[in-house]
Structures are given as structure tokens and as C-alpha cells.
């Protein structure tokens, strides 16, 4: 059964249609990559899943998006908050809050009243451990998160997202601000996290998609052209446009 299912999903920014009839089934506890040229609607699609597009004025959606069989597009405000607890997000540029490392991680817990104060320490430790930051940071939990290196910040953002125990983690080009070594380590981390979470990653970088993902969707001009096992997409694409793109014949 699919974790996320989109049915004839269309999205408009005002009069501009950014998503056209997207049908896709994301499987649980796998890494799904979304690739495609700049401006094809990857981020837009990703932001549908936690309804971040709601923030933008003039956005209209049609169709269905089901997570665990529930249509998420119709939920009221409290369901929206629940949705965002269930679906975490990691952004392109690491954006830890200008608070302490500790405060960053317990932010979501406080917002959702998920845990008692006594449990915070344990949760912070676990979250930092799962992004392999604990050993480095355990002595400076109360220093400002903005002092960390870029890679550490992105790890912290991942830790912050998983501290509320989501099911799904959305990542929008999470490595594009990082150097190749950091990128490799974050990819390693993603493979680790896939045991517990369903991950969707948007990336410009086809090698990255090929390296980390189990399934890949290729988008072009708002359409999901092809969606299949990563192996298959990269070795035997069915659509001519996909083939052109992965062989580098598109911009």
C-alpha cells in the first residue's frame, strides 16, 4: 500500500499551472527522488505534501493527495498542524533557528506538546545521535546553533525534523549548499534514516538520485513524465524525454 498517493493533482499559481495531472505512489520506508530541470515543479510538488504552498497567495489545487488513505488537501487548521507533525521538511539552505542547539531540537516538541520537560534531554540525545552529531555536540548543547558548520547545521535541521517522530521526511535539495564530502555523509545518513522514515528528496543532481534513491520520478514542465524504480529509470527509461534528460541532452 502506498504511503503517499496523488490522484490527478493539479496546482496553479494564479493563472500559471505548475503541476499537471500528477499521479504518483510513494512507498513506505523507501527513498523517493524527484528529478527534473529547473522550474519543472519539483519543489512545488514536495510542498504539496506538507501544504507549505498554503502560505503562498493565489495557490489553487485540484485533485487528491492521500497520506495513509487520508486526503490531506481538505483538512482544517488542526489537521494541518497534525499533517506537519507527520510530514517533516528539510530545506535547501540549512535554517536552524537562532536559538541554542537544544532549543532547536525541542522546538517541535514544545509546539505540539509532545513530551514532558523531563523527557526532553533523552529526546535531544536520541535525535542528535540519529544524525551522528551527538558526540560532537553533547558538550555544547546550549550554544547557538548558528555557530555550527554548514553540514552540522543541515544535520541539526534533520534532527529537528525527526525529533517530533514524523512518518515522512521531505528534503528539498538538502545537499546543494554542501561540499562533496558533506554531501556524501548526508547521503549516508539518509540511507540510515530510511529504516524508520519515508523520505522524498528533490534533487538537481542525477548522480545523487541514482546513488541514494529506491524510486525516482522525472518531472518536466509540471508533468510527472515517469515514475519507477531508480534502477529502471536510469537504465531502461520508458519515455524518450526521460532518456534525453538522464543522458544529459536536456538543459
Amino acid at each position: 500500500m502506498a504511503k503517499i498517493l496523488t490522484k490527478n493533482l493539479n496546482l496553479w499559481y494564479g493563472t500559471f499551472q505548475a503541476l499537471i495531472n500528477v499521479n504518483m505512489a510513494v512507498q513506505e520506508k523507501r527513498i523517493t527522488a524527484i528529478i527534473g530541470p529547473s522550474g519543472c515543479g519539483k519543489s512545488t510538488l514536495l510542498r504539496v505534501f506538507n501544504r507549505m504552498n498554503d502560505l503562498i497567495e493565489g495557490v489553487r489545487t485540484k485533485g487528491k493527495v492521500e497520506i495513509d488513505n487520508q486526503n490531506i488537501l481538505e483538512g482544517d487548521f488542526s489537521e494541518l498542524v497534525q499533517l506537519r507533525k507527520k510530514v517533516g521538511m528539510v530545506f535547501q539552505r540549512p535554517n536552524p533557528f537562532p536559538l541554542s542547539i537544544y532549543e532547536n531540537i525541542i522546538f517541535g516538541l514544545k509546539v505540539h506538546h509532545l513530551a514532558k520537560k523531563e523527557e526532553f534531554d533523552r529526546i535531544v540525545e536520541r535525535a542528535l545521535e540519529s544524525v551522528l552529531l551527538w558526540d560532537d555536540l553533547k558538550d555544547k548543547l546550549h550554544s547557538n546553533a548558528l555557530r555550527l558548520s554548514l553540514e552540522q547545521r543541515q544535520r541539526l535541521c534533520i534532527a529537528r525534523a525527526i525529533a517530533v517522530a514524523p512518518d515522512i521526511v521531505l528534503m528539498d535539495e538538502p545537499c546543494s549548499a554542501l561540499d562533496p564530502q558533506s554531501t556524501a555523509r548526508i547521503e549516508e545518513l539518509m540511507r540510515e534514516l530510511k529504516k524508520d522514515y519515508t523520505i522524498i528528496i528533490v534533487t538537481h543532481n542525477m548522480q545523487q538520485a541514482a546513488r541514494v534513491s529506491d524510486d525516482t520520478g522525472f518531472m518536466l514542465l509540471g508533468e510527472l513524465v515517469e515514475f519507477d524504480n531508480t534502477d529502471k529509470i536510469f537504465t531502461r527509461p520508458q519515455d524518450k524525454r526521460t532518456e534525453d534528460y538522464i543522458t544529459g541532452r536536456y538543459g
Binding site: 498542524v81 535554517n95 522546538f107
Partner: peptide, 11 residues
């Protein structure tokens, strides 16, 4: 991005 990050966490 701070505000977006907070909202994405369900704030």
C-alpha cells in the same frame, strides 16, 4: 527561512 522552518514543524 526561520519562519518557514517553524511553520513546517507545525507551529
Amino acid at each position: 527561512s526561520y519562519k518557514e522552518g517553524a511553520l513546517a514543524l507545525g507551529a
